[in-house]
Amino acid sequence: MNKILFFAELQENVGKESIEIEAAGQSIKQLKEYIEQEYNLSKVHQSMTAINEEFAPNDETIKEHDTIAFIPPVSGG
């Protein structure tokens, strides 16, 4: 299983901080497409993605137990 984390606007749109799904073997891009359809969340495509707390490109393949976080444009400081 994989834990998927949502933050900021994405979290409010999904209505949850996280979900658990089986995403191993998929690319980040494929996962984004799934999330877009499942939650009507086109904004997921404007997000960066982190796998296990490190930024990852869209073509990276998700492994079993990886934690995926969608990172909308940041606004700290």
Binding site: F7, A8, I71, V74, S75, G76, G77
Partner: peptide
């Protein structure tokens, strides 16, 4: 440091 915070640190403000 402050410019990098605004680029790579996952913090959001509402």
């Amino acid at each position: 440091a402050i410019e990098r915070i605004k680029e790579i640190v996952p913090i959001w403000k509402k």
